[in-house]
Write a protein that binds this DNA or RNA. Structure first.
Lengths: 204, 204, 204, 204
DNA sequence: ACATAACCGAGACGGTACGTCGCGTCTTCTA
DNA sequence: TAGAAGACGCGACGTACCGTCTCGGTTATGT
């Protein structure tokens, strides 16, 4: 199992514990350091020593919380990704799509996007990373989009036979391709073109 | 500059060459070994010793040709990617799109796709890699797609105001997302859904 | 300065030491391994990997203590050479000389002698090695011999005008020549011939 | 067998040979380069590339003549050592000894002495080197000394029961010890002390 | 209050891969 | 065929990072 700093099960009043408790503030300092280092040099060149030094911590303090470099990076990323994506409800399909994708694009443009990209190469060889990655990065985004489309259908803005699942894939794919491959800007103009030129025509 | 085994510049009458020339057959053996190792264990776990051993070569022979592990992998990938993508001309837009995307999906499913994924994480920190990657992986695919759409327009199968550039992005994005992120199959059913559900409706 | 594992200077109240301290037992294990390897294959063919493997240590653990292969070998040798030579006091010049030289010959016949020989070729290019070598291998031997001759003079067994310094040189030279150059045995017969045929006649 | 460039047997007019004959001048150029490099950096740091470069030769040209680095060094040294030692015949024992040892000391002080020292460490692990070394460096010196002592005996300057063999060892040992170990000067004063203080008293 | 036990920073440890360099061989061009 | 040049397979070099461990020292808790 991948250990994460936050896992501790649904227990009630924490069982009596002896000895000095973990300093919870180190968790965040370490994640912050890991994020910074990864954003600066990428996953490959990230070293545990660098993270420890930047957080003014010892390596043991890291390994007490995470099992490996990969585990640290996964948890750091998940932590950021798990910030709930804002789910707009403007009353119109076009509004919801534009607002959501704009926010998501902004989110991807930040450190989380960089971290995500750094991890892509590891996915095929790290099943647990892949699962975590998909569970947060992808599933959440898909879920929000699907709810937006669902509301659109109930409002009659989406044809009953529209290829909803495919539209979700296509929207995410377009963003990811720009983010990770072409490096073209993920700006409002792009989102507008995507929504008005591709998504809405497919749905209505 | 990223050194590649094939670089040799616009040579004039070719200066008299001194010493034993590079054994060109080692180039291919090393690239082949690199591709195999990378497909087996991924970019991160690929070691130069492993490549050298598999190719029955010394490490110096590798470093004489490529500056680093990354450089080797880039060149290996480019070498494969530069195999011209077959450009179908079936006479119909739907046929061309389906045939091309099916072939491209098959191409991505093989070792080249694995190698490409392994490199994505390095793109932001390796400008030359990014340039090479985009110049082969992306530009070629886009060019073929655009020619297909162009022929379609001349045949009247594509509306004059269709969002051609966006369609190209969307098609590539959908494939890449499945390939690298979700891990869902890149099969004929998917290509068919993409072409019939997304691309053709946007174009005609 | 040539780093040696034992250097630590005239420490005062000893500053609070941070981090895990060096494991002193590794020092000895590494020196022992180095001595064994050098005795087996000689200085030239001694590899750090071989020493590390034999001592079940990592190479870094060696390089943390010694700067180079040469430094390791020097320190190993000095460590052995600094075992005080037994200083006999039999009451007679002939007895003292015979006993001392026999012991010294036995000492040189062992691994220390092999190591010493391995280092001779480096002396002209390694001033610090030369200094250390002379300070232990040569100075000590000379000092003991001189004390023996001194006692002999006080007992009247040594002529006042005997070429004491030259005798010391000659005794050492004869041993070294056999040890390192001719390979002839350094046995008791030889010592006896040396003492009775050369040293005593020169002194009395 | 150790190949040497000069071995070719006592044949008459060289057998008819096909192709370009060896350039004999390269032999000496290579030996000279080897000697220079060895005198500068020692045996250990001598590289074949360095010798080849200094002699403006290719490595193959070296290996066509000598089997290995060691072989080259041995032959280079032997070549120098085989310059016949001048064998004085002054008419007196003291004169012969002084003259011979002075010349030998001067000989050892030059590059040959440096090369000899560089080889000492290899003797125990290179039997052929040891044999060659002893056959030239030691045997020749001993032979001359013994002939000098022989003439002295016939003239009545040497006691019949003098420890001749031991005197030879002692004389050589004293020189070698200064040369290789202590680094003290091998000058005329030293030779004089040795002859007058040690050798003559033992012999007459 | 004081022992206990887990915490903390620091850094040594065994291991593995790195990229370089030297050895001795092999392969080209030129004379 | 020799010679200069230099690529080749091999293997040791000394460095860096991984994940573990062991120090001295700190900080809550439970007696």
């Amino acid at each position: 199992m991948l250990a994460t700093a936050s896992e501790q099960g649904p227990l009630g009043p924490r069982a009596a514990q002896r000895g000095r408790p973990r300093d919870a503030s180190r968790d965040e300092a370490l994640r912050q350091a890991a994020l910074e280092v990864m954003a600066e040099v990428g996953y490959r060149a990230l070293t545990m020593d660098a993270v420890a030094t930047r957080a003014r911590a010892g390596k043991a303090t890291i390994y007490r919380r995470w099992e490996s470099k990969l585990d640290l990076v996964i948890d750091t990323t998940n932590h950021l990704a798990s910030q709930r994506l804002p789910e707009p409800d403007t009353g119109s399909l076009a509004g919801d799509l534009t607002e959501f994708l704009t926010g998501f694009a902004r989110f991807l443009t930040g450190p989380v996007g960089k971290a995500a990209q750094a991890l892509v190469g590891e996915l095929p060889h790290e099943p647990e990373l892949a699962e975590a990655f998909r569970g947060t990065f992808l599933a959440q985004q898909d879920a929000v989009l699907e709810r937006i489309l669902d509301r659109g259908r109930r409002r009659g803005e989406v044809r009953p036979d529209a290829p909803v699942r495919m539209v979700v894939e296509v929207a995410g794919g377009a963003l990811v391709r720009r983010l990770m491959l072409t490096g073209q800007p993920l700006d409002e103009l792009f989102v507008d073109n995507l929504v008005r030129g591709v998504l809405l025509p497919l749905l209505s």
